[in-house]
Design a protein around this nucleic acid. Structure first.
Lengths: 350, 350
DNA sequence: CTGTTAGCGCCTTCAA
DNA sequence: TTGAAGGCGCTAACAG
């Protein structure tokens, strides 16, 4: 069994209190010799305080919770990494929970983590336009527990609630504008699930860029996907059917699907169609035709999230919402100037 | 503040003991009405036991630790995901720690997690051929704490220690044998860091396949890499210089580097050189030329790991080492029959 | 300078 | 069928 504070006290022939005092660097009202003895004995016994006991009495656990939908997803994996690293630096430990596609599970984790005495929580959920009932209960729970909470979506900042936002709309705008500037006039868009705010925002950016260029919004040029590879695969033929010469895919997985579909149709990127993705996955620049993509800075988001979380934990009352993190477009080889010379037939061989 | 058991007891006009008894489903020696009242009140007060307190007295925290080098790495991300999911199903919670390249940090986490009363620990570290001093201390620590520990490397199984191994050697063997069977006689190998057992094993498999085919082992055909993209990039020219017509890359990131290098040299895969990777990343089959690769089943490893961990936690004393998980070769388009007709000059244009 | 006392929230004998 | 008392390991007033 691990040595307890009692063991140390006994071995020193001294009271528990004094040991606690010394080991916690409290006001050094203890004589040097005693103090030294305590340290020595503690080391020899390899004494380490039981954090459960400490937490019970101090109400501080130096633990935070991190709840994500899918840990193995690039973005969330990166987020976990950064957050974990920051916590480590702060001497905090992280409880990890993945809720998959069950909002209820997320709520479970809220409860379980609170029961374990976390001091803060990062809830990395992509919310819908309107919050679900469970989402709302999650927030209430955190609020009523006075638990500092950080999310990555627009939402009311409160005394214990902060958000770190990313400007998805501007991302969609930049991507589309880039295509417009290359002379494309029929630009397809593969969106994410229409329930998600982040997906809707990207679409809004797309629309805005079209408007600015006085290009008409064409329903046929917009295809709803599910952020997965297959969506890109099946979207391309539809968009080609509507006459698209360029495509903005709302994320890179779907863009990868477009690559594949293009190959199957004997089309070449970017000669026959230009393609812009979203996320800037590491793979983008390793592709045969490196993918032009909007950078979704997972690390920065995680960093800023932890920063704001610890600000709350440490008692800051700065409720001001930080400015949205801004996207950047990484132009690579998958986009090219629209060439009217390429006959539609050539563009749509087969 | 959250309601405590005392609040429930008071609200019921009954003793704490009884409440505890009932809520913990202990021997139902309590009258139905009282019992019901307790449940009702508990629900109304939204009572949830403080896990710190429970853990302190019961010595059970329903928490396990998970220590990985890099959370954002595919393999470990997948591992985390599976393990977290399994724990969730078992009603356990996971503490996550990433140690980057600092073994000392891993040791820190061992201590910190033990202090928090974890009931088991998964330590997903790729070990060197001989354990480092810190590694050894980690194991001792766990052993002396009687903490169930699972690792993914060969090692002594003890009363509280299990390993789940993957047959890297066979993976290297399968990859190389495949190339041999395609008629290649000059097969390059890009290894991982020579300190890692898993890297060495892959190399051993490569050697074995050569031996079986009575092909000579040529130092010039073996290039040590660091499991990263750049390694593949710089390895290819060396291997070509040694006359390689095929390459076995010890992981897919390096294989991706080979793709890139090949493109730069104007070489086509698989016409000019065949390529086999290792890991079977999701990206492999999405590539323009899908990559033949050895499957490294992160999920299965994680699954088996958790299974064995919980077996220990639940008191099984089955110390038998499970058979190594076996690799499978996924043959795709990056490997082709060696064609002596292709002149070396064409093979090494430029 | 140091020890006593009182809990933190909960479980668990033991007694009523 | 229920309750009182003790203790898990630790901290924190408050005394000496």
């Amino acid at each position: 069994m691990r040595a307890t504070i009692k063991d140390v006290a006994k071995a020193c022939g001294i009271s528990i209190t004094t040991v606690s005092l010394v080991l916690n660097q409290r006001e050094c009202r203890v004589s040097e010799p005693t103090r030294k003895r305590i340290f020595d004995v503690a080391k020899k016994l390899d004494y380490r305080p039981n954090k459960l006991a400490v937490g019970l009495v101090t109400r501080r656990t130096r633990t935070i919770g991190l709840i994500v939908p899918d840990i193995s997803n690039f973005h969330f994996a990166e987020l976990c990494k950064v957050i974990e690293r920051e916590c480590q630096a702060k001497g905090y430990i992280v409880l990890l929970g993945g809720y998959g596609d069950s909002d209820d599970q997320a709520f479970e984790y809220f409860n379980a983590f609170i029961d374990k005495g976390i001091e803060g929580l990062v809830f990395a959920k992509p919310f819908g336009l309107k919050l679900s009932e469970v989402d709302r209960r999650c927030f209430e729970l955190a609020a009523s527990a006075g638990l500092p909470l950080v999310t990555f979506d627009k939402g009311p900042a409160g005394p214990t609630r902060r958000t770190v936002e990313f400007d998805f709309a501007r991302g969609g705008y930049l991507a589309t504008k880039h295509l417009v500037e290359l002379g494309h006039r029929k630009i397809g868009c593969i969106t994410g699930p229409s329930g998600l705010r982040s997906a809707i925002d990207r679409l809004k950016g797309y629309e805005k860029a079209l408007r600015e260029a006085s290009l008409p919004y064409d329903d046929g040029l917009v295809h709803e996907g599910g952020f997965d590879y297959e969506s890109g695969l099946e979207a391309l033929p539809c968009l080609l059917g509507a006459g698209a010469t360029a495509v903005f895919a709302s994320n890179d997985m779907m863009a990868l699907g477009v690559y594949k579909a293009a190959r199957e149709y004997g089309l070449s990127i970017p000669r026959d169609i230009s393609l812009v993705g979203f996320d800037d996955l590491f793979i983008d620049e390793l592709l045969e035709v490196p993918l032009t993509s909007v950078v979704h800075p997972s690390s920065e988001l995680g960093l800023e999230g932890t920063r704001r979380l610890f600000a709350m934990i440490e008692g800051s009352s700065d409720t001001s919402s930080a400015p949205k993190l801004q996207p950047v477009l990484k132009v690579r080889a998958s986009t090219a100037r629209f060439d009217p010379g390429v006959a539609p037939s050539a563009r749509r061989r087969r």
